[in-house]
Amino acid sequence: MDEIVKIENLSFAYLEKPVLEKFNLKIKRGSWTSIVGPNSAGKSTLLKLLMGELQHQGTILIDNQILTEKTHQEYYKKIYLLTENPDDKFISETVQDEIAFVLENKKKTPQEIAEKVKSIAQELQIEHLLHKSPHQLSGGEKQIVCIAAMLAHEPEVVLMDETLNRIDFAQKEHILSLINKLRKDRNMTIIMVTHNLEEIVKADHMVVLDHGKIVLRGHPYKVLQEEKILNQLGVEIPFMISLSLKLQYYNLLDEIVLDMDEMVKKIWV
């Protein structure tokens, strides 16, 4: 089995309080994993550790590349982070430069860079934004620019830290399906931290964290039916799932249905 992310015996403490202790996690290449848990379960810490922003104990391996002080450069070729608030992380004054930045660092020739920028812009339909400042764009456009920069980077693993929080519903659907398509086309692995459980049903694997420990993991549909545990943790259950469960309680429905039209059809049958 091809495991692209291997986290072994990972420990981290903040102000002498352990956040993660002997934490282990393995993730398969090409999968889409969502990490869920209450505020302060250790999700953001885990992502920061994966991005080498905090000192850690234990091993972190991505595509067999170990993360240490000395191997940063090689390690960062494998992984890319999409954040919630991209404004902090824009480096360039134009979208074009933002996409080209990583290519310049990879020492591609000017022609190669120009072609790559153009093809990425076409693929994501952002040609009209290339000369704008990334700071001037709307929230959704900013995230798409970040995805464009990610495509130029060509990482094996993409981390999403509440990336879609501030995107309105229509754009969210667009970005999610875009990411899913890219994952399939390029066999990328996605690890997503979110509170929005509507996003989670798109993933094929789900990990529930609490106090730095894995409480539940498996396919989202399976995990999300553990209503009791999730409720205790304060994890929000997607509207359609909790509605299905409630309708079952009232004997109005027999199964879990995610699509509203379909559900309305099935009630009282």
Binding site: G52, E53, Q73, F101, H153
Partner: peptide
């Protein structure tokens, strides 16, 4: 950090 993560 962001620059280093993007191979700078």
């Amino acid at each position: 950090n962001a620059m280093a993560q993007r191979l700078y």
